[in-house]
Amino acid sequence: MPASATGVHHRSYASELTLRHTRAERFRLLLILAAVVMVPFIVTPYWLTIANQIGIAVIGAVGLNILVGYTGQISLGQGGFLAVGAYTSALLHIRADLPVPVCIALAVITTAAIGALFGVPALRLKGLYLAIATLASQEIILFAVRTWDWLTGGVDAISLPRLEVGGFIFRQDFDWYWVIMAFAVLAVITGRNLFRTGLGRSFMAVRDQDIAASAMGVDVTRTKVLAFAISSAYAGLAGALMAHYTGIVTWERFTLDVSVLYLAIIIVGGLGSIAGSVYGAIFMITLPALITRFGQDFQSIWPQAAEKVPAVQVIVFGLVIVLFLIFEPRGLNRIWQRMKDYIRFWPYRY
């Protein structure tokens, strides 16, 4: 049983439904927001790039957590859905010459539709079997991207011009930071809101007990397809942002590795938790960046350090997942909760 703050007395359901009840909780949120605003003024360009990558990963991870963590439908197709978002937005921009915000919006809708389509196997399959079916969707999408030369340009990369909105050109990481963070915050807020409502609860009902859910009037078919669509919409947004931010779209950025990375993010962060998606994204993107940094720093002592970096990254990636699965399968979110409990209960143990 987690600790709860004392002295909080609600006089209305509305006040009980707020997410933060104590001044400390609200202050913490303010600190986080302040940190988000401060970051681009403090960090080096290298870390600003990492921050932007984290922002995009947060959006994708929130989406995947909605599907895997909250609805219980395991998916290995996140890379494919990111690709759909990236390619849709990029192609609409360079072929149809639509403004980028419109391209991104259309990419979100298109990815949602394609996600819903690939979610259809989930109506019959569960667990491991569904994982294989979504793996197929990942491979089918990437196969289409590589072979439909007339549409995607095949294996060649698409380069995009710099984003320009109303005469302002987004040149640097600094400019992009605000765009990406705005969307990341939006993703977190909408994700959190979804699971405060009956619609989000029906997702969790399907995860926990689908037969009982149907007996309570939840249309399980519709719920699963909807979960795939919503989850893919977030992936589409992340993919589209990635495309315009990096300016280069190539299939190599959306391979199975990416799907696995996103699964790792939500496992490390915490399944069934929006905050966990954020923690996981920060952790799993920062870790390899740190290793790269250490590799460069060690070069003066050990000249081969830099070339060992990729191998070390892979080893650490695997190790982190194994350690989390053994010691805290509920991820960073649970660790953070335990830390908060420890402080609240202190000096008592429970």
Binding site: T197, L199, S202, V218
Partner: peptide
């Protein structure tokens, strides 16, 4: 056959599922 990860309150609120409207955009906006 309860939804075991959900609280008592959330389980009971799921009993209201058929009486609620569940519009997506409204849910995202809260």
């Amino acid at each position: 056959e309860l939804f075991r990860h959900l609280t008592v309150l959330e389980n009971l609120m799921l009993g209201r599922h058929v009486h609620m409207r569940h519009r997506l955009l409204a849910s995202l906006a809260w």
